[in-house]
Every structure is written in C-alpha cells, then in structure tokens.
C-alpha cells in the first residue's frame, strides 16, 4: 500500500502512514486554515487501509496543539479505527501527551468517551 509521509510545519502535524512498517502516526501542531484539504488524503488513505488491515493497528497521536476545526478531522481519523474494531479487527489509539498538558490529556479522554476504540493514555515526561 502507498505510504504517506508528511513533514511537520508550523501549522500542520507530521504524518506517517505505513502499513508494511506498522507505523500510524500524527504528531505536532494542527491549525491549518483549510483542515479538510490537509486531512482528507489521510482519511481517504485509512478508508482504503481498513479494507485489508494489519492484524493489529496501533495508531499514535502525539499532539502539541490542535484547533477545534482540526479536532473534528482527528475524530474522522479515529472513526476509521472504530470501523476496524466494529468489523472484528484489533485497533488501539495510543494518545501521547506532555504530562503537564491537562487539556491534551482531557482531549484524549473525550475522544475515548465518544468512540468504540480502546485508548491507551501515555504521558510523556517533560
């Protein structure tokens, strides 16, 4: 499957989607002007991936910051993982946050509350 490799900018996160390598990562800050232009290719990639997924999908989020428009798109990404779980596959979100960032921790807990995907909350030492 095609590999997505996007470098981080001051308004968009680093993204790596590599099924062969078992790497699924979004990390950094997200406040683009046009969130759909940035996230649509990622969501489309996942739509294809979930047709023939790996045995286990560990999706890592390691966000420093995201605006509310991005929060909606991040949910769309997580909902693709929910499809995986619903179709009997093994998927987990590893939600990494700076240990002193209670807002980011709470954001992860809120996603965990509204989707049927297991979350692992991972504080990162500052």
């Amino acid at each position: 499957m095609e590999i997505i490799n996007i470098k981080a900018t001051d308004e968009t996160p680093e993204v790596t989607l590599n099924a062969a390598n078992h790497t699924f990562l979004i990390a950094g800050r997200s406040l683009p002007e046009d969130v759909t232009a940035f996230y649509d290719p990622i969501v489309s990639w996942l739509s294809v991936y979930i047709q023939e997924p790996n045995d286990i999908t560990e999706f890592v989020f390691r966000m420093d910051y995201f605006n509310t428009a991005s929060s909606k798109m991040i949910l769309d990404v997580i909902l693709k993982l929910e499809h995986l779980v619903e179709s009997g596959h093994n998927a987990v979100v590893k939600w990494c946050y700076r240990e002193d960032d209670e807002d980011m921790e709470e954001a992860g807990e809120e996603y965990a509350d509204i989707v049927e995907v297991p979350f692992r909350m991972i504080p990162i030492e500052v």
């Binding site: 002007e33 509310t68 428009a69 929060s71 909606k72 809120e110 509204i114």
Partner: peptide, 25 residues
C-alpha cells in the same frame, strides 16, 4: 464537557471549515 462531546460527534464541518465547537471549547 457533555455538550462539547455531543457537538464533536454530531457536527459537520461547515463550508468555511468551522466545527461549531470554538465557543464551547
């Protein structure tokens, strides 16, 4: 918190790319 989660789950992005979440958040 409850309203935020509800809106996050149910809202659609507007044409302008707003999620209707800004003030709540």
């Amino acid at each position: 918190k409850t309203l935020y989660k509800k809106q996050l789950r149910e809202s659609r992005l507007s044409e302008k790319g707003g999620a209707g979440l800004g003030f709540i958040d």
